[in-house]
């Protein structure tokens, strides 16, 4: 087993007065895919957004507890949230490329972080990011056309390339295939198995098959609580909790 990359301890999340997560503790391992499953509204996306502090954006949202990456508390005052997000990339449910060219979409991150020193550096980053996202061959002739003109699956891979462009260590994926057709989904899943060699990937998914296909470990959320976390094989063949059993056999959700 790889070493622990992310460790969440006793996470409570509140939206105003409403509590969305209850005392969630979970470890995630380096260069592996960890899946978070559960019925909608169960808090799995909220938990994911704690890892790159995207919850900070919502005024009324407050997070209690402790998340550490490589042993560093990411909610510490000395942590700059922008640098955190530089090393923890995120891909969203619906592909959200900027309405700019494909090139600009990927170049944006490196530019604001000052990663590229020259135009050639930047060109190189764009190319490798696209290659890693398995998109380069499809778009190499139209790098300067709008990213919004691509198909849904291509757009999502563009967003993955955008996340990769700033050399993150972790990539968070929030139901990345829910807006895509089966073929595009298959491509993204293939891509994930490629990416996990280099990155730690946490994926939220509503599809249990997808979790079974891509992940090594799976956590099951229900009503804001982490019910069970174990290796994917165990969760799907021999869950320890009745609720998990009910969910994966399709009794609810």
């Amino acid at each position: 087993m790889n070493k622990i990359k992310i460790s969440a301890k006793n996470i409570d999340v509140f939206y105003g007065d409403k509590q969305a997560l209850f005392d969630v503790s979970m470890d995630m391992y380096e260069k592996e895919v960890t899946a978070l499953i559960g019925p909608s509204g169960c808090g799995k996306s909220t938990f994911l957004r704690c890892i790159n502090r995207m919850n900070d954006v919502i005024d009324i949202c407050s997070v209690k507890g402790n998340v550490s990456i490589d042993g560093h508390d990411i909610y510490d005052k000395s942590i700059r949230v922008e640098s955190l997000r530089e090393s923890v990339g995120m891909v969203f449910q619906k592909p959200n490329p900027f309405p700019k060219s494909i090139y600009e979409n990927i170049a944006y991150g490196p530019r604001i972080h000052g990663i590229a020193n020259s135009k050639t550096d930047l060109d190189e980053i764009v190319e490798t990011s696209l290659q890693k996202a398995a998109l380069f061959d499809e778009v190499k002739d139209r790098l300067h056309q709008p990213g919004t003109g691509l198909s849904g699956g291509q757009q999502q891979r563009l967003c993955i390339a955008r996340a990769i462009s700033v050399n993150p260590e972790i990539i968070l994926m929030d139901e990345p295939c829910s807006a895509l057709d089966p073929i595009a989904t298959a491509k993204i899943e293939d891509l994930m198995s490629e990416l996990k060699k280099e990155f730690t990937i946490i994926i939220v998914t509503h599809s249990m098959q997808q979790a079974a296909r891509v992940s090594k470990n799976t956590g099951f959320f229900h009503l804001g609580k982490l019910i069970e976390v174990d290796s994917t094989d165990t969760i799907f063949s021999n869950p320890g909790n009745q609720k998990t059993q009910d969910y994966i056999t399709g009794r609810f959700g």
């Binding site: 959200n96 309405p99 996340a163």
Partner: peptide, 14 residues
């Protein structure tokens, strides 16, 4: 749409 803001924040923009 908020997704544009999120996209930028997620790559580490302020």
């Amino acid at each position: 749409p908020p997704s544009i803001r999120e996209g930028a924040l997620a790559v580490g923009a302020t």
